[in-house]
Design a binder for these strands. Structure first.
Lengths: 215, 215
DNA sequence: AGGTGTGAATATATTCACAGCT
DNA sequence: AGCTGTGAATATATTCACACCT
């Protein structure tokens, strides 16, 4: 009775879908019409069995003896990831990091459009960057709702992240990408993904320490 | 004969250690001398059994009936993560994102010191930011070795990431944090961690799509 | 009594190996 | 013949439940 994840697709598979999608789009750009699990695995840094197993959860997408049609896969995975239509995002915390994310080309390329900016610093509020005005965080609930923003990207200092989260949740946002090193408390129906660069550095540090020890 | 990970500590535990460490340091700052698994779990967003199991891999660090000594845990986890001494890092790709990372306070706070910057843009090479000159990527092998840099943070455009990786590997770097959405090919003894913000957004998008579908 | 440490039970993920289409 | 799709086997991770120490 393992309900897994809502759809019958395991979490670990979901986490690999964006990766597959990226590689498939590259293949498509190269004009490659068909790909077999082995080749795709090589591109993504996994193995063929993993690819086939993952895809099997999405349905029978391949043709035995032939391989997978690239275009069909792109279509199907985009569908599952819900990125066939553009999704609106807001950036909360417009310091250096927030500004960098605002200009990040990977977002629009993958269907995410930044439509609002927020900060609490009076020196920033009201300023316009690349056509978007910075609103005060207090405005967030109203503005987010009006614009129909679905995703909030938090790039605030650690202590401000929870406040920012509360504001965007009040604005009806159901998905948060948190770049501050702070565990957020949010209602059950709000999805949070935590990105912590220091954490990643510490894990790398562990591996370095391992190597040093082994030497 | 499962050799796990070199030390006997499972990967999944390692990935949680930085989280624990952060919370423990906060407790320490609050002057809390002792913590029990339940409380720490609440702070970190896990459960008590997980905390105890994780810590059991590090040795017998707690006292039955009492709990864990915060200071001892901080010491021990820092030791294991290899963050007791400062580690030197370099940033490759000094665009907006690179610059934002350069100023990121979380790095020095956790013992990571940015000591070199690289780019290929002639307009940036030679400029000085916060006391550090931007070197040309071609200089990287030499400069990294001279400074004893252990970690490279790649913040280049996607197509330049592999080139950057090759250069830092030549400079003796054994740990790479890659913020470009590109799978890197590196020698076996080089550790890579991939951070892809678009990937995270896509996973959030999947969850949104799930919720929409369920409604 | 109150907490840790841990074997056993369960759940999840990956890999293998081969039957089944084309 | 070739490559997918998948049950079975294995490996890894999480959770349970209780013995064991203070």
């Amino acid at each position: 009775m393992s309900e897994k994840n809502g759809s019958g697709i395991p979490e670990s598979t979901i986490e690999r879908l964006p990766q597959y999608l990226r590689c498939l789009i590259e293949l498509q750009a190269l004009g490659v019409p068909l790909v077999k699990s082995e080749r795709l695995a090589a591109l993504c840094g996994t193995n063929a069995a993993q690819v086939r197993k993952d895809f099997s959860y999405l349905g029978e997408l391949g043709t035995r003896g032939i391989g997978y049609e690239v275009a069909a896969l792109v279509e199907h995975i985009s569908q599952i990831l819900g990125v066939k239509e553009r999704r609106k995002a807001a950036i909360v915390g417009y310091g250096k990091l927030g500004a960098a994310l605002h200009g990040y080309p990977g977002f629009p390329e993958r269907g995410f459009e930044v439509v609002a900016l927020f900060d609490v610093d009076p020196a920033k509020v009201g300023q316009v960057f690349d056509g978007l005005a910075v609103h005060h965080l207090d405005e967030a609930p109203k503005v987010l709702r009006e614009l129909g923003v679905e995703i909030a990207i938090l790039a605030t200092p650690p202590h401000a992240a929870q406040l920012a989260a509360d504001a965007v949740v009040e604005g009806g946002v159901k998905a948060i990408l948190n770049l501050a090193p702070t565990r957020l408390v949010v209602p059950d129906d709000v999805n949070v993904r935590q990105v912590c660069l220091s954490t990643d550095l510490q894990i790398l540090s562990f591996r370095l320490a391992q190597q040093e020890g082994a030497r």
